Simulated assay, not measured.
Amino acid sequence: MTLRRIRKLLATACATAGAIACLPALPAVDLGEVTLEESALVGGQNLQLNGAGIARRLVFKVYAMGLYLPDRAQHTDAVLATDGPRRMTIVPLRDISGDDFSEAVMSDLSSERFASAELRGQLLSLANTIGRRPGGLRRGDTLTLDWVPGVGAVVALNRKPLAAPMRNRAVYDALLMVWLGEKPTDPALKAKLLGGAPADLREARL
């Protein structure tokens, strides 16, 4: 098979699968104080960094965050529709108390799509589990929030699981909506998580 033929087949495959899925993975992203790797192994599958940025409250940098997916996605609905594993990585840039973390997650969950009392109760339990550590989250910690098909939502701090997996996928999707919903906690961060170009990601250093 000629090189020209191979290139033509690859181009056809990209057109068939969709342009988003065939976009190249982002390289490791240097956010100034934190560098997020270009890939992550979750549930036995290699995920690619979809986007990354820094969350801010007023003028303060609070944490760096990266979203890892099997294929690139530029829209929230595409992220929610992902069948395979997913990962959110959060690295605090300052100490965050457990109460502050729980309150932030619950107050930012504004979508009526996830407003059932049962779901909010599970989210509160999950948020409290994350914030239960004495002193809360500390600067430089690595918090990973994974969805692993057949296992559930796996929350780990510095690679150590904080609780048994939660099998309700809606809980994990609701967590995603905190950052990717119609009223995200940080609109600029949402844009970067949904495939912001490398030039956009470099702005996070400012």
Rank of each mutant, 00 (worst) to 15 (best):
S102N: 09
S116Y: 03
A25H: 13
D71T: 13
N128M: 09
Q48A: 13
Y63K: 06
V105S: 01
Q45L: 13
S110A: 15
A64Q: 02
G66K: 00
L41E: 11
A25E: 08
K8R: 15
L26M: 03
G66L: 03
Q74P: 12
E38A: 04
R132P: 06
L69C: 08
L23W: 04
S116Q: 14
L123W: 06
L123G: 08
N50A: 08
R94Y: 06
L93H: 04
A73D: 12
G66I: 06
T35H: 00
N50R: 02
D77N: 10
L123M: 12
G121T: 08
M106Y: 04
A15Q: 14
L10S: 04
G18I: 11
L119Y: 02
L80N: 01
S102T: 15
C22E: 06
T16K: 10
A104P: 02
A21L: 10
A104R: 09
G98I: 07
K8N: 11
G66S: 01
A25D: 11
G44K: 11
S97G: 15
V91S: 01
L137C: 04
T35R: 01
A55C: 06
A17L: 15
E118I: 13
K61R: 15
C14S: 14
A115K: 07
A55F: 10
Q48K: 08
L58C: 07
R132Q: 13
T12Y: 11
G98F: 11
I90K: 03
G51W: 06
F101H: 07
P27Y: 00
E112Y: 09
S125V: 14
D71L: 12
D100L: 14
V29G: 00
T35P: 00
D30G: 03
R72P: 05
A21W: 11
I20S: 13
G84T: 14
G140T: 04
G84V: 15
G18R: 10
V105W: 04
L67F: 08
R139Y: 02
D100M: 09
T12S: 07
R138A: 11
A73P: 15
V29R: 05
L26N: 01
C14Q: 11
G32M: 00
N128S: 10
D83H: 14
A11T: 08
A40F: 00
P70Q: 12
A117K: 11
Y68H: 03
L49S: 07
R113I: 14
L126A: 15
M88C: 09
L36S: 02
K61M: 00
R72G: 01
I54W: 06
R56M: 06
P134T: 08
I54V: 14
S107V: 08
G66F: 05
D30R: 02
E37T: 01
C22F: 01
C14P: 03
A21Y: 10
V79H: 07
F101P: 05
P85D: 14
S125N: 12
G135D: 13
M88E: 12
H75N: 12
P70H: 01
V42T: 09
A81Y: 04
